[in-house]
Amino acid sequence: MISFSNVSKEYPNGTKALDRIEFFVNNGEFVFIIGPSGAGKSTLMKLIMHEEQATSGQIDVNGYNLRKIKNRQISKYRRSLGMVFQDFRLINQMTVYDNVAFALRVTGVGGRDIRRRVFYILDLVNLLQKAESFPNQISGGEQQRVALARALVNNPAIIIADEPTGNIDPELSTGVMELLCEINRCGPTVVVVSHEHDLVKKLDKRVINIEKGQIVSDSSCNATTGPAIDNNNKKRGLNEK
């Protein structure tokens, strides 16, 4: 569950990135966030990640009040989120395998489980043969998929993806979006920032449109697309069993 009530964000340099944002995402929902460049989409994501803090208003995610969250709770809170950053944020000193495995290791999972899980996820994003490469040895699209794999690997309750298809060709981006939809069917909430309006239209999900820091439209207010959880379609989701 993600809830923003009356949230504004002003950066220290005076830029007003978000202005009285108000929305609610149910567990298991799939939401697109669209809007022109500079609208404040990444800022919204950063607020959810607790990378930035709201200037005013209240944000609740997974039962955490982000205004009151304690420093030592933050790492645990972040483990319940799977984040794909617009700039990937892979660790250059680690192989693709270790980058993905790291998200598991921080949760205290041990050796053999890690191997199985990481290889399963790398297979899911078609990167098995790049497992031992370093981020600077693979293409931008591949890096993006590593970032996606890392976000998925520890079964987070919420997956947040900032332009997960920004660097890949149309075919692959359809593939990534379909993967996110499939994952969403297994339970996790998915929030995706996207520029690709055609793709967004085709998938027929809830769309929140932001312009100049304000929500200008939210399709859930006038459409019937509620939380779409299809329990029959679990054969290729997050859990390999």
Partner: peptide, 14 residues
């Protein structure tokens, strides 16, 4: 590197 680790959910001790 340190920042990324934090964002992935690593505790300070980790």
């Amino acid at each position: 590197e340190i920042n990324i680790m934090k964002f992935v959910g690593a505790s300070n001790a980790f």
